[in-house]
Amino acid sequence: MKPRSRRDTWRLLVLIAPSLFWLLIFFLVPLVMVLVISFGQRGTYGGIVWDFTLSNYARFFDPLYLRIFGRTAGIALATTVICLVGGYPMAYFIATRPPRWRNTLLLLLMIPFWTNFLIRTYAWLLILRDQGLVNMVWTGAVHNLFLHLATAYPAATLFSSLAGLTSVPLELFGTNGAIIVGLVYAWLPDMVLPCYAAIERLDFSLVEAAQDLYANRVKSFLRVVLPLTMPGLVAGSVLVFIPALGAYVTPDLLGGAKSIMIGNVIYSQFMSARDYPFGSAISFVLMAIMLIATLIYFRLGSD
């Protein structure tokens, strides 16, 4: 309702003033500062020279950064696709359970999601690193198995070569793959929840109607279920793609020198290179991409 009296107007002002103040000073002003600084230049000793130059944005086209941006986009895209392929059936599974099960399953999905991100990423370090769990099994149990088989069947060279293969640890840690596993793990619930919401709302009698009209299972899925749940699918993809694009902790802990992402570049511009203007320019572009993706999300969400 509209504020009806002067007292109402006062009440409204008092209610929003603290948050408005906080968000203006500690969110909007810093946001504008980032934009302004991104047109400045780095001083000789790391300070900011106030200026108007597009050189920070021009630096994006340096092959070094183009490669990093390309890799980041690739990793974010791969993460989104894997979350989609894994998350959609998972959402379908949850939505087709009896109602009392559904809430429990959703809760089980949400609990890890709201716990410490750094720690969950660190857990993957324990699994993927050279002396980690996977390689413990690989160079231990699997290696021993092939050694036994090779001695039991000396004629089969396959076993001895497999034994040789398993004697060295798999190179998992520090690869793009390790980052993707960490990101999928972190953001899978962001895909499952909107898909679940869409599938849960789906009127399954429409599927029956399609099948009554002799549509087979594949056809009724492609022509009925998929189009009707598309908004959830798009929403989930946006919700996964944005944080994957801005990832910092995951590539920092699970990636190596060869798998640097945009987040790591921003970090190093602020913490080691002390090039605030360039760091600001990258941050601003990242934010612009995020805003565009969010607008798409709300457009589709309002349909």
């Binding site: 968000l23 810093p30 944005i242 944080p243 801005g246 910092y248 987040g263 941050s283």
Partner: peptide, 24 residues
Amino acid sequence: AFDSLLYLPIIIPDIVMAVMLLIF
């Protein structure tokens, strides 16, 4: 506009928000 401002901190990548606040 205020509603959008209220939602922004939720969706902004945390590295960007961290950088903004550090600069500030």
